[in-house]
Computed example of a mutant assay.
Amino acid sequence: MRAAVLGSPVAHSLSPVLHTAAYTALGLDDWSYGLHECDEEGLAPFLDRLGPEWAGLSLTMPLKRRALDLAAAVTDLARRVGGANTLVRADGGWHAHNTDVEGVAVALAEAGIGAPRDAVVLGAGATAASVLAALRRLGLTSPVTVLARDTARTGEVTAAAERLGHPVRVASLTEIGDHLDVDLVVSSLPSGACDRYAEPLAAARADLFDVVYAPWPTAAARAVSARGGRVVGGFPMLLHQAVAQVRLMTGVEDVPVEAMRAAGEAELARRATAAGA
């Protein structure tokens, strides 16, 4: 059986390492996992070319919303969040799932951040919508403040919040200092973008979940950790969303999480060493 990760850019993806580690640990010697560069226009023809030996696909940006249009069936969660990061072959068609929400929720719970009373999310993209769903799953009921670089481009995350039935407030990232009296700050910003806010984060009481996994730790993560705050990086989220994908694609319930974790951490260490050489 075959599976792969698709996206653009996708060369940096850790998914092949994580999924292959799972197959090896499970003894699935006839399974393979590849990597393919694919943009939105290319997704439909790519799917059309796939034979019955294909079990599933992992999707990164910019394909998560396009997948909803092409799937034969979409889970309620993927529809509410507004994006799918997983396509699984079922009943002759592709079924769209969102495992990013599980990735966020399990990563936070694993770090002991199970039910924050209040939270702020930095960024308003597809990941922010999954974060909202995960926080709701963990039991957060209070409104979440979404801080965006451009408040005029928050329509998708506010629409997702409405579908999820969770209230949000929108404000500018330039006002971050006014919104940090919370239990948890989640940065869904690109690599390096949260670091400029290290100083106000260091002065706040909030724990930090930064979705960046390389390079790690980020300046923001170091600042929060230095004053005793709990910090969660992007790798645990990536790991646990992949665990859920392996479960969906293979049908195996007992997925080897620790084997996948070890393989991912080893690859990140190898890349860090290579970058510093």
Rank of each mutant, 00 (worst) to 15 (best):
G264K: 05
E37G: 13
S15H: 04
R270D: 14
T99L: 11
T154Q: 10
A78D: 03
A90P: 09
E110N: 10
Q241M: 07
L268E: 06
E110Y: 02
V88R: 09
E175M: 10
T151I: 15
E175F: 06
H95K: 14
R79C: 07
A202W: 02
A3P: 00
A266Y: 12
A111N: 02
P190K: 01
T60Y: 07
L180D: 04
A202N: 06
G165I: 15
W94E: 11
S32F: 12
T127H: 03
R2D: 02
L201N: 12
A171V: 03
M260F: 03
G51H: 13
A119R: 05
V232D: 01
G228D: 06
R66T: 15
E199N: 08
A21S: 08
A148K: 07
G93P: 01
A96L: 06
R80Q: 13
L147Y: 09
G165A: 11
S13F: 05
V157Q: 09
G82K: 09
Q241S: 08
T218I: 08
P200E: 11
G229N: 03
G192M: 13
A3H: 04
S172V: 00
V182D: 06
A226S: 09
N98D: 04
V185C: 01
S172N: 10
G229C: 03
A171M: 05
L147N: 01
L122N: 12
R80M: 10
S8Y: 07
R2T: 04
L135V: 09
V182A: 10
A22H: 12
V168I: 01
A259T: 05
F235N: 03
G114K: 09
S191R: 14
D254T: 14
A226N: 03
L189Q: 08
P256T: 04
V144R: 01
P52I: 10
A73S: 15
V106E: 12
